[in-house]
Design a protein around this nucleic acid. Structure first.
Lengths: 203, 203, 203, 203
DNA sequence: CATGAATGAGTCTTCATTCAT
DNA sequence: CATGAATGAAGACTCATTCAT
C-alpha cells in the first residue's frame, strides 16, 4: 500500500499548527474578543490573508483549539477499573489520572486560561461546546460517585451536587496554579485536592 | 445613627442604582464585552450622555457592580466566634453564614451569572477586576482555614490550596443551582457542600 | 392642533438629505461597489459613524436613493386622457409628460447614471427593485400600446416587444444625453424620439 | 489557406479559450465585480497562477471578451449594397444582417447578459471599456443612418440621436428575449423591431 | 509551463466616548 | 442636570496579484 490518502501536505499542517499555537496564546492573553486577528498573525508571523487560508474565521480557530483540547483531555480520562483483579488499586489509578490531566492542563498555560475562561464565550456555539465539555466531565464524576456509593465505598450523598462541587474544586485549584507566581508542585496540589475530595465523600 | 458623610442627593443615588441594576442585567445576559452602553441605557431608560454623568466609563459600572457585591458579601460574613461561651456552636454559625451568602448570590441571578462568567473578560481591566474580586474571597477563606488550623479545629493543610478548592466548590455549586431547571433547595445545597468541605478539612 | 406628530427634527432631515446627495453622486461616479463609505462620508463631510446613524448600511442608502427616484418618476407619469373632451390632445399630453420625465432625469445627472447602471447591481434586493421599476414602466408602455391599438390609433403589433423597444429607446437616448459633452436640447431629443416612436407605431 | 501570422501554440490557444469561456459565464452570472478570479479558475479547472499566465489581470479578460464580441459582431455586419444591381434588395440585406446579429448575441446567453449588465461596472476601467464597446456600435449605426439619409433613403434626422435610440431599442429587445421565459422567436422579434425602426426613419 | 501558498491593501461596520444645546 | 447627535479608532474579512517551487 502507498502512503495514506488523507496524509495532508506536512508543510500546510505545520503552518496550521503554527497559527493555532499563536492563536492559543493570544486568546489566553486577551480572551476571545480581546484577541484580534492582527495580534494572532503578528505572533504567527504571517500575513492577514494567510490566516484566512487556514481558518474560515476567528471563531473557527477558537473552535479548533477547543476541539483539540477536549480531544486531548478525553484521551487522558478513563474509567477506573475497580473489579478487575489485575488492575491497580482504584486510588492509585485515580491519582495517576488526575496527575496526568493536571500536568496536561497546567503544562499548556494558554489552554488552561482558555478553559478557565469558559462561562462567557461570545460565540454561542463555542460556549455551548464548552458547556457540553464540562457537562461531560461532571457526568463522569457523578457516575463515579454513584457507583462508589452503590458498592459502599462512598457515603450516601447528592451525586449531582457533589459532582458539581468536585468539578468546581478542580477548576479552582487549576486557577490557583495558573495565576500563582510560585505555585505548589503538581504532586502537592493533587495530593491535597484528592485528600479533601476523598475525605469529603468516602463512607 | 449619623448620616453618611458621602450622602449624595437621594435622587441622584436613585438614578445611579437604576443604571447599576440595568447594567447588571445586561452584563449578566451578554458578558462584559457583549454588553453595549446602548443596551444599558435602553434598559435604564436614560439618554446616552446621562450614563456618563454617573459613571466614568463602561469599566466603571462593572467595577461598581463588583464593589457592591463584595460589600454585600462581606456584610454577610463575620468572624466565627469559637471561644465566647455565649456564641452559638461554630458549625451553626458557619452554616448560617454560608446560607446567607448563597441566598444573596442565588437570589440575585444577574449577579450570579455575572460572577460565573468570570475567568476571561476580553477587557484586561475587567478581567483583573474580577480576578481581584475572587482573590479577596479566596483570601477570606484562606485566613479562615489558617485560623481554624491554628486552634486545632482543622487539619494541617496547604491553606492557599484548600481555599482555592473551596472557592471553586462554591462556584461549581452555584453554577449548578443557577443553570439547573429544578435545582435542589438552598438548604440541601449548603448541607451537602458543608459536609464535603468540612470532612475534607476537619482535623 | 399642535404641529404634526410625524414632523421629524428638521436638522436631522437635512443631514439625511446631505448624506443622500453625497451618496448619489458617489454611486453615480463609481457604481455601487466602487462607492466606498469612505468616499461618501468624505463628500458629505461627516464622520464614519455619523453615516451609520442615518443609514443602516451601504445598501440602505442605495435603496433610499432608488426609492426616492422611483417615487419622483411615478409622480411625473400619468395615464393619458383620450376620451375626456376637456383634456388636451393626446400627443400634447404625451409630449409634456415625456419632457417632464426627461428633464427630471437629465437634470439629476447622478440619478440618471444610477438608473442607467441598472442591470447588475450587486445587491440582489436592489437589483430586483430596479427590475421591478423598469418592469412597471414597460407595463405602462405596453398597456398604452394595447389601448392605442384597440381604438385604432396604433397599428397592430406585438405590444410586449414594442414596449421593450420603447423603453430601450428611452434609456439609449438618456445615455446619450448624459454622456455626450454637448448634447442636443431636451426639446430636440424628445421631438426626435417621439417622431421615431410614433411613426413606428401609428396606424 | 495560409496560417495566421500570430498563430500561437494551438494548445495555448485552447487554454486561453477555455479560460475566456469560463470568465464569460462567471461575469454574466455575477457582474464584473462579483466575478472573482477564484470562481473563474474553478470553472476553468486551472490553477490560480495559470490564469495570470494567459491574462494580465481581471480587467484584461473582460476586455478580451468584449474584443471578441466586437470582432464577431463586425463579421456579421457588412455595408449594405444599394447600387449594385446584382445585390439583394436593401431591406432583405438589412434583415439578414440583423437576424445574424441577434442570433449571435441571443445564442450566447452569457455574452448577452454580460453586455446587458453594462452601464456601471464599479471598476472604472471596465465601465469605460463597455462604454467604448457600445460607442463603437452606436457609431456604426450613426454612419448607417447618415449614408441612408445622403442617398435619400432615410428622412432627415439627428443621426447621433437616432443611432442612440436604435441601439437602445436593440438592447431593450434583447433584454426582453433573454429574460422572458417564453420569448417570441427571433424572426418575430426582428420583424417587429425592423418595422418600428424603419417606419421611424424611412423617408 | 503549471501550481497554489502567501500577501496586504482595502471594505464595511460597531461602539465607547464627547460635547454643544 | 439631561440629552442624543457626532465622532473616529479599531476590528473582521475579501480578493486580485505575485512568486518560489
Amino acid at each position: 500500500m502507498a502512503s495514506s490518502v488523507v496524509a495532508l501536505d506536512p508543510a500546510k499542517q505545520e503552518r496550521r499548527r503554527q497559527i493555532l499555537a499563536a492563536a492559543k496564546t493570544v486568546f489566553a492573553d486577551s480572551g476571545y474578543h480581546g484577541a484580534s486577528i492582527g495580534a494572532i498573525i503578528e505572533r504567527a508571523q504571517i500575513a492577514r490573508g494567510t490566516f484566512y487560508l487556514y481558518f474560515e474565521s476567528k471563531t473557527a480557530v477558537f473552535d479548533s483549539i477547543l476541539d483539540q483540547a477536549m480531544k486531548d483531555l478525553r484521551a487522558r480520562i478513563r474509567r477506573i477499573e475497580v473489579v478487575e483483579q489485575t488492575a491497580a488499586p482504584p486510588q492509585v489509578q485515580l491519582r495517576a489520572q488526575v496527575v496526568a490531566v493536571f500536568e496536561y492542563i497546567v503544562g499548556d498555560r494558554p489552554l488552561a486560561m482558555l478553559l478557565l475562561s469558559a462561562g462567557h464565550t461570545p460565540d454561542v456555539e463555542a460556549a455551548e461546546r464548552l458547556d457540553q465539555f464540562f457537562g461531560e466531565i461532571r457526568d463522569l464524576l457523578r457516575r463515579a460517585v454513584e457507583s462508589g456509593a452503590e458498592i459502599g465505598l462512598l457515603r450516601k450523598c447528592h451525586p449531582e451536587l457533589v459532582a458539581a462541587a468536585m468539578l468546581g474544586m478542580i477548576r479552582g485549584v487549576i486557577e490557583l496554579v495558573i495565576h500563582d507566581p510560585s505555585p505548589p508542585s503538581i504532586e502537592v496540589v493533587v495530593s491535597e485536592m484528592l485528600t479533601v475530595a476523598l475525605r469529603g465523600v468516602l463512607a
